[in-house]
Nucleic acid binder design. Structure first.
Lengths: 116, 116
DNA sequence: ACCGCTATTCTGTATTGCTATCTACTGGTA
DNA sequence: TACCAGTAGATAGCAATACAGAATAGCGGT
């Protein structure tokens, strides 16, 4: 993966996964597949599992083991109240950053408007 | 600073600084002040200087020492051609990520549209 | 000449997150 | 039996920001 993308995912991937779980509960393998579907084509699975461990330890998600037809039991994660709050803050942080970055982009393309 | 913001800045702060330099050359102390002006109120200077060292070593900027009335000479950084290309790639990476995250936000607020 | 003030740069150490790679387990199928 | 696909995890390594503090350089006042 591009180095820029790798760095940019730090701090955003977590929000992305929480946002996926906000739509409906899911298990790790499924989340990885969803991410790949949505264009994050070279996210490695280990990354997702490590992230899931972190958010579980922070109490942002509830976990339920569900037997699977093939392979080990699935660990189905669902966003809980604390996770919901955390996700809200993620959106606030994201919006803050996105606004400022868009502003910078605008500045570059319209350099004359500088002042104020 | 909020932990989420700290993590989110990884990979974006570099682009932000390059974007500032794309508008006009600047020195470290000035860049820090600009960032604070623009709402990144608790960026610490050490972070900016470390970043400037990195982008200089990667050859993304040109540096010129300019004497200052008070204090050590300023190191004025200006974006060069390589830096410009790198910034272009930053915008591509950012746009990719921003699009997907906006999509997720949309999904959460309109859960019924799921399929497709 | 000295002191202290401010502007400016730089230098550790700590913390965190993603990557890459590998292991392990389960059940079906050739 | 051997292999494949689904599923979870562990480890070591790297890169970036945070934080605190030191160092440098000129100037004004006494």
């Amino acid at each position: 993966m591009g180095k820029q993308m790798t760095e940019m995912l730090k701090g955003t991937l977590e929000g992305v996964v929480l946002a996926i779980l906000a739509v409906r509960p899911a298990y790790g393998y499924e989340i990885t597949a969803t991410l790949r579907d949505q264009g994050f084509s070279d996210i490695v699975e280990g990354t997702v599992y490590a992230l899931l461990v972190r958010i579980e330890q922070r109490g942002l998600v509830d976990v339920e083991k569900v037997p699977s037809e093939k392979g080990p039991p699935r660990k189905v994660y669902s966003l809980n109240a604390l996770g919901g709050e955390y996700l809200e803050e993620f959106w606030r942080t994201w919006n803050f950053l996105a606004e400022r970055i868009e502003q910078l982009h605008h500045n570059i393309e319209n350099p004359q408007e500088e002042g104020a």
